[in-house]
């Protein structure tokens, strides 16, 4: 009974609507889909999203692993405060994040943005702003996956490696990283999915200059608003496929690794 309820819930809320995106994309055959994906503006939007997502995943992975190590392996004054602070990006609405970034990095009035603009660096309404916004909203995802794994693994293995002659970096690379790698990979997947789908914060900081600062999600909105429903569905389907494919790959890899390890 409980199983039925869960399945119905997931179908109504997730599977059905998402599958409709895919069928919607193909409702008039492949022709319009091909048209959409050969449109240079759509391609530029996809590329911009790819760039922003790549940066967001890389930055958040490095930051996430680093801060997780700091939070779990060290004790220092303000540790709790830091732990609370890193969750902030998940709690704040993306629109607010966008506005906050404009306040700081806006090229006209932003208190960091104005001097940067004078030096010739534009952040808001440009790619760096989009990268910043995307990174910001997905910040704690890797961290939150890694912290519990680090806590569970404990320090014995690391200390054993140290006593066997490994320095801090070798210990991290050979012992800590392999131990937390699935946490890191999951965090990266979540981060990737979240970053691909980001809309609100990016909308505020991008200025939505078509062909320049329009990301894939922004172009979905634009296509939809311009009554190109099929185009909108096509791009949306492409975005969700990426996330779904990545999650499936990770699932498969994980099962295989666990079999090999025999535990």
């Amino acid at each position: 009974m409980l199983r039925l309820v869960v399945i119905a819930y997931l179908v109504l809320l997730v599977a059905w609507p998402v599958s409709l995106v895919f069928t919607g994309a193909l409702s008039d055959g492949l022709g319009p889909v091909i048209d959409t994906f050969t449109d240079p503006l759509v391609l530029r939007a996809l590329r911009l999203t790819a760039v922003a997502v790549l940066w967001a995943v890389v930055l958040n992975t490095v930051f996430g692993v680093g801060v997780a190590l700091l939070l779990v392996r060290r004790s220092f004054p303000g540790r709790r405060l830091l732990a609370a602070l890193v969750d902030l990006p998940l709690a704040v609405s993306p629109v607010v994040v966008g506005l906050a970034l404009v306040l700081v990095y806006g090229s006209r009035n932003g208190w960091l943005g104005a001097p940067l603009a004078q030096a010739g660096v534009q952040i808001v309404f440009s790619t760096p702003g989009i990268v910043l916004a995307t990174t910001f909203i997905a910040m704690p995802l890797v961290l939150r996956e890694v912290v519990p794994v680090l806590e569970e693994v404990g320090t014995d293995q690391e200390q054993a490696a140290r006593s066997l002659g490994a320095g801090p970096w070798a210990t991290f690379r050979r012992i800590t990283l392999p131990a937390i790698r699935w946490g890191v990979v999951y965090g990266m997947v979540l981060c990737l999915a979240r970053a691909i789908g980001e809309f609100g914060a990016v909308k505020v900081v991008s200025g939505n200059l078509i062909g320049q600062t329009q990301t894939a999600t922004l172009s979905v909105e634009e296509l939809y608003m311009n009554f190109d429903r099929q185009g909108a569905f096509a791009v949306a389907a492409a975005l969700s496929s990426v996330s779904i494919v990545v999650i499936i790959i990770v699932g498969l890899l994980r099962t295989r690794m666990e079999k090999r390890r025999g535990s």
Binding site: D156, A160, R162, S163, G165, A166, G167, S263
Partner: peptide, 20 residues
Amino acid sequence: LPPQRRGVGFVFQHYAAFPH
């Protein structure tokens, strides 16, 4: 001296095997 430069071998109660 840091542990890696002391020339000690350490064995832990819970083995601390490297599982990977």
